[in-house]
């Protein structure tokens, strides 16, 4: 009897150890299951624009045509929310995947080339991969009702087929959304075509580009060539007193005074289609934005050093013509292909 008990105890102990080992192994991150056995997914080759940084694609969410399509379907479907909204409600393709109006007193950051971002939102409050930020969107922002999602025969079947899951979780939704948003790449602006030698710029566009990429305008240190954002947080001297909470920017994330007024450098692709600029939409035209950088930068203690350099303590001092040329160049960043590409549009099925 004693021996029998010992064997049982030993067995329990060993099983416990094995269980612990297995559970420890499984804990770090839920992996994406393979598709339904018998269903063969079609690999999708994401083509990045020339001279863009390497794109990080998580091993467990490699792109497949079917999963991207599923993500697109979700992007446009208000099943994601409990109040009738979908991602597309605030991201219109015709505006470069933003909207002309403000939402919660803020301009909506456009969905474009998100795959290269490490920080998201104006204040950089979300970090990580697209899977991470999409998990936030579905779980917290939309608070997607999983019962409703799983009650949908369409999604149950598609997730079963493409992801091999019987019950759809927020993680599955996030992964599908990440598949689609990672495929949303702008790479056919006039500026792209000029850089690849396929098209010439007009005189004014060329002069504007020279202002942009030289000490004259010095836009390029933050709006890096081609990708048009360095992805970093900067205080560009918008405010000397932070009256609104939202004006404090990255400080609201870190609590560090040096981060007061710091915001993520926005992507400038399709910037000419936007109607509100800066984190609070205080400027309504590109001309107003340029006027600000030209002579209204505030000399606060943590303003980016680039903003108050020698000769520019009192602003860029651009002429009216130079300002017009800068706007002409910014207009070359509009990507008509991106805003009309049907593979990013609302599915018709």
């Amino acid at each position: 009897m004693r021996i029998h008990r010992k064997i049982i105890l030993c067995s329990v102990g060993i099983v416990g150890l094995i269980m612990t080992a297995i559970s420890c192994k499984k804990e770090p991150a839920p992996s994406t299951p393979p598709p339904d056995p018998g269903y063969k997914l079609t690999p999708y080759n994401i083509v990045a624009p020339a001279h863009f940084p390497q794109m990080h694609i998580p091993e467990d969410n490699k792109p497949y045509v079917e999963r991207i399509e599923l993500g697109r379907m979700l992007y446009y479907d208000n099943i994601l929310s409990n109040d009738g909204r979908a991602c597309a409600s605030c991201h219109f393709q015709s505006y470069g995947f933003t909207v002309p109006n403000m939402v919660n007193d803020m301009p909506v950051l456009p969905h474009v080339n998100l795959a290269w971002h490490g920080k998201f939102m104006w204040d950089g409050s979300k970090t990580g991969t697209l899977e991470d930020v999409m998990l936030f969107e579905t779980k917290e922002f939309f608070a997607t009702d999983l019962e409703k999602m799983n009650a949908s025969e369409k999604y149950r079947d598609l997730f079963k087929k493409y992801y091999g899951v019987d019950y759809i979780t927020h993680h599955d939704i996030a992964y599908a959304l990440a598949q689609f948003t990672r495929s949303m790449i702008s790479k056919d602006t006039k500026y792209d075509r000029y850089m690849s030698g396929k098209e010439q710029l007009t005189y004014n566009e060329e002069m504007g580009m020279r202002i942009f990429f030289s000490e004259k305008g010095d836009c390029f240190h933050c709006h890096t060539a081609m990708i048009t954002t360095d992805g970093e947080m900067h205080n560009t001297g918008l405010d000397s007193i932070y009256t609104k909470e939202m004006d404090k920017g990255y400080f609201n994330v870190t609590g560090d005074p040096k981060d007061l007024g710091r915001f993520r450098t926005p992507n400038l692709r399709n910037v000419a289609l936007r109607k509100n600029f800066m984190h609070d939409g205080r400027f309504k035209t590109l001309e107003e934005v340029i006027d600000f950088y030209d002579h209204s930068v505030k000399r606060v203690s943590n303003v980016d050093p680039i903003m108050t350099k020698e000769g520019k303590e009192n602003g860029l001092r651009l002429t009216i013509v130079e300002k017009q040329q800068l706007v002409a160049f910014l207009n070359t960043l509009t990507d008509q292909t991106y805003i009309t590409d049907t593979s990013f549009s609302k599915p018709t099925y």
Partner: peptide
């Protein structure tokens, strides 16, 4: 564009119209 296109290398780019290549050093402050 001769270095691997990492985000760091892209951000170190020196505009073509100023001679091209890369920043060797960025030392900034107040």
């Amino acid at each position: 564009n001769s270095l691997p296109a990492t985000i760091e290398n892209v951000n170190m780019g020196w505009p073509d119209m100023m001679g091209g290549g890369y920043h060797f050093l960025k030392l900034e402050g107040h």
